[in-house]
Design a protein around this nucleic acid. Structure first.
Lengths: 197, 197
DNA sequence: TGTTAACTTGACACTGTGTCAATTGACACG
DNA sequence: CGTGTCAATTGACACAGTGTCAAGTTAACA
């Protein structure tokens, strides 16, 4: 194990991410994370003031490791609205499985913790921005279905792509990530794009 | 107040529904419900073994009061798949606001309580059945888009119509219930129905 | 040798759920 | 009139998990 020399803070973050992924974001307590990090429960509080703060830090840590910006590049480079939409859904759909554990934990923490709700809201607004850009690109191309205003279309796409829907389709309905991406693309195209017979 | 003579059990259920609606299903404790029912906290446990059991009973009570079957009748009487789909979305979309408080509380209880998860799952399976019937009707008419198998289409429609999505669109995005119904119909028709130019 | 920072240990406060036991008051039955 | 029973009350308590606090340990560094 190379974990001996890593800074404690990082070791906690890694343990957190690992355990949350393992348990689908449920039932992971501060004590469990401490044990996994091989320190005392109180030592965790020396680095993170609260469970929520730790979860938020874990999210940021994961974003860094997974290099979100690189993943989003193809979508941003798209030359048409239709392409941009498809690539955005592809990127996001392949990203969710990687962050699901931490996302779920943060999602659950929302119920009791104001700060967790704010942190998640923040992330989701960033995601909405991607949806808005895709819809805006369609709109600019003149390929956005006339029934939808850009604002309403953005809201609808945003909602469709929310993490709990991914969870429902993959975990409850048994879809593969590949199927999720494929069918979400179909749905979005048929719904928002003109002429996609 | 006519509440003096009503049976305690019913008084508890009414208080529960009232408080949950008022508070959007969050932060309502057994003690609060007891106070609202004008009895002691322990007396609530004389009628319901646990918070979850009370929530489930409140759901059933509400279903009875709201007469779900009557509401669903128009959809069941539809003569085409397209009509059935539209009427189902209409019925469901107008139903959610009435049950939201209780639904949300049950949804939140899922995280910690196995039984709550099962109860909610049950309700959602009933809802899925409505989705399946609508999609099946399209399929029978030959108007289901060829990209979708009936099973996949059912899963997708089911997911779209989940309560948290309604919450997101109305509460977070500020849509009215009318807009929700209208745009969900649009989305479903464009996605699942052939020839809906 | 002394200081400092990181960490440990153990105790405890807090919240909300659920349990338990003793008690009260009302009503009905013989 | 007494007795049983039923619904409800009161108050104490167990339990989990988070977060706090204080005192003590360890190791590096100067």
């Amino acid at each position: 194990m190379s974990s001996e020399n890593i800074e404690t803070r990082t070791r906690i973050l890694e343990a957190t991410v690992r355990m949350l992924e393992e348990h689908g974001g449920r039932g992971v307590r501060m004590g469990d994370i401490a044990k996994e990090s091989e320190i005392s429960r109180q030592a965790v509080y020396l680095h993170f003031a609260s469970r929520t703060e730790l979860l938020v830090a874990a999210t940021r840590y994961l974003d860094e490791v997974l290099d979100v910006d690189r993943r989003l590049a193809p979508s941003r480079a798209a030359t048409s609205g239709v392409e941009r939409l498809a690539l955005y859904i592809e990127c996001w759909g392949n990203y969710i499985p990687d962050i699901f554990g931490v996302a779920k934990a943060l999602l659950l923490a929302q119920d009791t913790d104001e700060a967790a709700a704010a942190a998640w809201q923040d992330r989701m607004l960033a995601m909405r921005e991607g949806c808005r850009a895709a819809i805006e690109a369609l709109h600019a191309d003149g390929t956005l279905t006339p029934e939808w205003s850009p604002k309403k279309a953005t809201d609808a796409l945003w909602t469709m792509l929310l993490v709990p829907n991914w969870e429902h389709l993959t975990i409850k309905c048994g879809w593969s990530t590949k199927a999720y991406v494929r069918y979400m693309k179909t749905l979005a195209q048929r719904t928002f794009v003109v002429d996609s017979k």
